[in-house]
């Protein structure tokens, strides 16, 4: 089987996925959304947290696949899973019963106070863009101990206030972007680390409010060859990186 030749360095998106994987160290249970969060969590389980129990809102618990799922009800995730429960059981017992450590989602917009929007751009009554809405995201944000969010760092996605509050800010929140890591501190998202080669001015330029940086500011340990190989193996079609 051909092994793809590794490029010299990780792309910003590959680095973001690796940081998501690292962020799950020490967690036991995580409810993941499909797409980049799923890939990052799968990477974390593979590299750092083999006991991590990944769950999907479809009711799949500890899904069995190394194949990357396009849908959270993918039959490939069912085969080899530890359990399948109904959606209601998942939301009521495990999420509502506060049995899930972390949620890992993506977002269209995130605001200064950590509110997330996946519902509309513009007004709710007359939107310029209609987005999918909550799905389970607002329930997850409300009912997990820690919310991880992964999204590209662009000014239009980081407004001072989101157009619509789909999910209120969680108690504890970490936002991992291709430029920086932000966490909630005194009710506001602040930058705790920036990527190597990224400047504060770049982060400021792509953030819609006068964002604060912690002092000292963390740097991001470089992506290792193992991490890079794993992310490219998991996402061999390059769908998410």
């Amino acid at each position: 089987m051909a092994v793809p030749e590794l490029r010299a360095a990780a792309s910003r998106r590959e680095e973001m996925l690796v940081l998501g994987a690292r962020a799950l160290k020490g967690r036991t249970t995580v409810l993941v959304g499909i797409g980049q969060p799923n890939l990052a969590a799968a990477l974390g389980k593979l590299l750092y947290t083999p006991e991590l129990i990944m769950m999907y809102e479809s009711g799949i618990i500890d899904g069995g696949s190394e194949k990357l799922a396009l849908s959270i009800g993918d039959p490939a995730l069912v085969k080899g899973a530890a359990a399948i429960c109904s959606m209601f059981e998942l939301f009521a017992y495990y999420l509502g019963g506060r049995r899930i450590d972390a949620g890992f989602v993506s977002a269209a917009q995130i605001g200064r106070t950590g509110d997330i929007n996946t519902t509309v751009i513009g007004t709710y009554a007359d939107p310029t863009v209609r987005l999918p809405g909550s799905g389970g995201a607002s329930d997850i944000a409300l009912l997990v101990d820690e919310l991880l969010v992964m999204m590209p760092h662009e000014k239009r996605r980081f407004p001072e206030r989101v157009d619509f509050v789909t999910s209120s800010a969680g108690r504890s929140m970490t936002v991992i972007t291709d430029l920086a890591t932000l966490v909630m501190s005194d009710g506001e998202l602040v930058v705790t680390a920036i990527r190597r080669g990224v400047t504060r001015d770049q982060v400021r330029a792509e953030t819609g409010w006068p964002v604060s940086f912690t002092d000292p500011l963390g740097s991001t340990p470089p992506v290792t060859a193992d991490e890079l190989a794993a992310v490219r193996r998991l996402d061999k079609d390059g769908l998410y990186s």
Binding site: E57, F88, F91, A92, R130, S134, G135, G136, D139
Partner: peptide, 19 residues
């Protein structure tokens, strides 16, 4: 966009309505 009437929930709310 043409005005189809709709009602929107979160997943948990929708499932709770069914239950």
């Amino acid at each position: 966009a043409d005005g189809l009437e709709f009602e929107e929930y979160s997943h948990f709310q929708m499932l709770a309505r069914l239950v």
